[in-house]
Nucleic acid binder design. Structure first.
Lengths: 213, 213
DNA sequence: GTCTATACTGTGATAGAC
DNA sequence: GTCTATCACAGTATAGAC
């Protein structure tokens, strides 16, 4: 059978389906027991395979992590692409929307966020191909920030740091809670003030302790 | 031999010395090859022991990680305790000093910072005892922030998020570099402005793109 | 091409001799 | 307290059935 044969499409589809099945099982294990609990045996058992059979679809366990990493960022990229044309006109409101989307996306599946943003798997470094959608998403963010008024590259770095910090604190200290989620609008205002973004604040400014005599 | 016997002190000291030797070897491996590369065999080899002998001093590998975690936070706690009486009078300068100390402490040993702040070891959760110095350090930070004018609890959470975000971005994207380190003073100003901290800014405010006609 | 069967290496962990 | 021996399980790899 050659590439052009009638059976090619069918077999390729079946192969891709198996690949997705493997990844789905891997995500299942990761969500239930943590990224570190993902083993080839566990994946194989869930889809009724023998562990070595997985090597017909992925060259190594790292390749599975790599595909998961890529999948996570592709999902996020799609979210922001769908979001962008529907952003509010007000710069601060737009920034708050972007921030909320990022935060909620991360907290919806903390395990996915950990794999995407932290180094939870010892020795795992995403390949260039898997890293591509992450770069695209970051470029998109930079573009949006520039459009909204945060001109310099440093401003973009500051924004990702603030946003990433809030997400990471929420996941590490209170997964499932909203303690840092509630700080999101205030953080956006803080950032918007810093980069001189116009428009009224989204949140009321907190008074300094002792300053209200 | 009982607890009160003359040999107790000597034996206890020797035992504690061995414990420290094990931990030192573990840090050595972690610094050289990453936290995930720490194995009982590698530790044992470095101090001329057989791997199972480590179990005479630590009940499990997790217990070793736990002791490392505690050690890291104890080191940081000592740093901030020595720092506090020497803080500048100006609130913003004081805040900048605290932030710089935290950042530089973390970046001095990224592996230590990862263990302290991120979930790099699958399944590892610090025990209450190991977590104690971390709580003490955080309480200290909260106290300092309150004294400097950031009254509410939310303000403290916001500060740790910003600071943690900067550190985490630096470690993840450019370990050994200074890209996010250079944003530290600006971030402190941003935060100080948000909580209404008095005093002049430490950094010049960046103009909004297009606003300088 | 895909799956089964089997084996190799390295890991954390335990039991028992000294 | 340290050692030797051993276990269970991980990821990985290869050979061979179909």
């Amino acid at each position: 059978m050659s590439i052009g044969s009638p059976n090619f499409n069918r077999q390729a589809k079946r192969r891709e389906a198996t690949r997705q099945e493997i990844l789905a099982a891997a995500w299942e294990v990761a969500d239930e027991q943590g990224i570190g609990a993902v083993t080839l045996r566990e994946i194989a058992e869930r889809i009724g395979m023998q562990p070595p059979s997985l090597y017909s679809h992925f060259p190594s366990k790292m390749a599975i992590y790599d595909a998961m990493y890529q999948q996570g960022w592709e999902e996020y990229l799609e979210v922001v692409c769908q979001l962008e044309p529907r952003l509010p006109a007000q710069p601060r409101a737009a920034l708050a929307t972007v921030a909320a989307e990022f935060f909620d996306f991360a907290l919806a599946k903390p395990t996915r966020a950990q794999l995407m943003n932290e180094r939870v798997v010892p020795g795992f470094v995403p390949t260039a191909q898997a890293y591509a959608p992450a770069v695209a998403a970051l470029d998109n963010l930079r573009m949006t920030l520039t459009r909204l008024g945060a001109s310099d590259e440093a401003a973009a770095d500051l924004f990702t740091a603030v946003l990433g910090g809030l997400v990471s604190q929420q996941i590490a200290n209170e997964p499932g809670g909203r303690r840092w989620r509630l700080l999101l609008e205030r953080a956006v205002d803080m950032y918007a003030d810093e980069v001189g973004m116009p428009g009224p604040r989204l949140t009321a400014r907190t008074e300094l302790a002792g300053s209200h005599s």
